[in-house]
Design a protein around this nucleic acid. Structure first.
Lengths: 151, 151
DNA sequence: GTTATTGCAAACATTTTGCACCAGC
DNA sequence: GCTGGTGCAAAATGTTTGCAATAAC
């Protein structure tokens, strides 16, 4: 058996264990959704997962996919690649800079630092892609939200 | 007059010049939207800009704000901070890695490199934020879309 | 048997579109 | 006057919610 299948088996077993330990039901829907995620390299959307699972599992609903993704994210088993997906945000600053993103209130603050001005992204790293630009996204909690936590 | 106001004046003048050079009408709506963007540090959404402008300009419509933001982006005068905002995308890979994002088809590919494993983000840089995580977002054009361009 | 989860439908939020009117050039 | 831009309303898209039926434990 190839090493990759073994890894997937192991991950599924760990997933089941995690659910039991945290008192979450192990439903076929959850198994299918988590399986779809660990076997995809494409960072699928809820809709992508839904379409893929529906072939094997025609009664599953898109709402279940959304609810499950949220549960898995809260459990720290998966993460959203798109922390600010819900609204488009704009910037008139055309110089290289990076972003601090507050995971609580979605504030965005700019920062710059010499060390990140000209990152080297050699071919071994970026493969065949034509690189246009890059930014560092730092996820954190802004000052105001830290205050709110203490209050 | 403070240096900041001078900068804003200069930017507005350059904006007008850019529009004329490119044959775009210089309308009060466009001026107001661009002005709102260069005077905000908060990376506003279309709705934010709309609310702010409406105070001075009660007849402006949200659709105009959307259309104008798209135009300004195509002109390279502003940029979306959220290249993938239209759909939430998920990832079960819990190790540190970074993303190549195709600006054409929105494919996401992972990459890792030793140089970006443990970025130093000192207090001078991140200020009062509590940092949880970071990723580098590289914007580019994937192999398939480069092929499609040539075809 | 109890509680959490599912699936459906309806609601919601954000963004896009079609089109008549209007304003910039 | 011509062309492109605006504003409205409707549609489209992506996501969330309420709730009754169902399945996990």
């Amino acid at each position: 058996m190839p090493a990759r299948d073994e890894t997937i088996k192991t991950k599924m077993a760990q997933f089941v264990e995690h659910c039991r330990a945290r008192g979450l039901s192990v439903t076929p829907q959850r198994l299918a959704i988590y399986h779809a995620l660990i076997t995809s390299m494409r960072h699928p959307s809820a809709e992508d997962i839904y379409k893929r699972i529906r072939r094997q599992y025609p009664t599953i609903s898109l709402a279940t996919v959304y609810k499950t993704l949220e549960t898995l994210e809260q459990e720290g088993l998966i993460s959203k690649v798109t922390p600010l997906h819900e609204t488009a945000r704009y910037d008139a600053n055309r110089t290289r800079h990076h972003h601090l993103i507050c995971v609580k209130c979605h504030a965005i603050e700019d920062f710059s630092t010499e060390a990140l001005e000209q990152l080297q992204l050699p071919r071994e790293v970026v493969g065949d892609w034509r690189v246009l630009d890059y930014t560092v996204q730092v996820l954190g909690v802004c000052r105001e939200c830290q205050k709110r936590e203490r209050a």
